[in-house]
């Protein structure tokens, strides 16, 4: 089973996404912020990380940098609804930081599943 680490600070979004992924046969571990996510990563060692960007207690961009540093081959999808700046800008930044795919909220389930398939099959 493919392991996906999900890092998303919004509770209902997190649960919805987790439900979606599990229904699609992925093993999901969910964290609510970058810090928790980073901790869980070492235990879980997922194949893919889906991370929100704007989060408290260590944001997505930082998390991407750290995880990529640790495991350069790790696949990361960055999602964002934006913050003070537009989502695009954050997502562009994440691309620059070597996120593999980006997705702007609001997105459909399909869109997300497609991205995942593209990265890890």
């Amino acid at each position: 089973m493919i392991k996906i680490l999900l890092i998303e600070d919004n509770e209902v979004m997190r649960e919805t996404l987790k439900e979606l992924l599990e229904r699609n046969s992925y093993e999901v571990l969910a964290a609510s912020d970058g810090e928790e996510g980073t901790k869980l990563y070492n235990k879980f060692l997922p194949d893919l990380v889906i991370t929100d960007l704007i989060m408290p207690n260590k944001g997505g961009l930082r998390t991407i940098v750290d995880l990529k540093q640790q495991t350069p081959s790790l696949k990361i999808i960055a999602i964002s609804g934006g913050g003070t700046l537009e989502a695009e800008q954050y997502l562009n930044a994440s691309k620059f930081l070597k996120a593999d795919k980006t997705l702007k909220k609001p997105f459909s389930n399909e869109q997300l599943l497609e991205r995942i398939k593209e990265l890890i099959g």
Partner: peptide, 20 residues
């Protein structure tokens, strides 16, 4: 911004769940 951001997440959850 803050509200919108949260909203997006909430909407995402609603949409995602509805799609599921």
């Amino acid at each position: 911004s803050g509200i919108a951001h949260n909203f997006n997440n909430i909407l995402g959850a609603i949409r995602g769940s509805a799609e599921m």
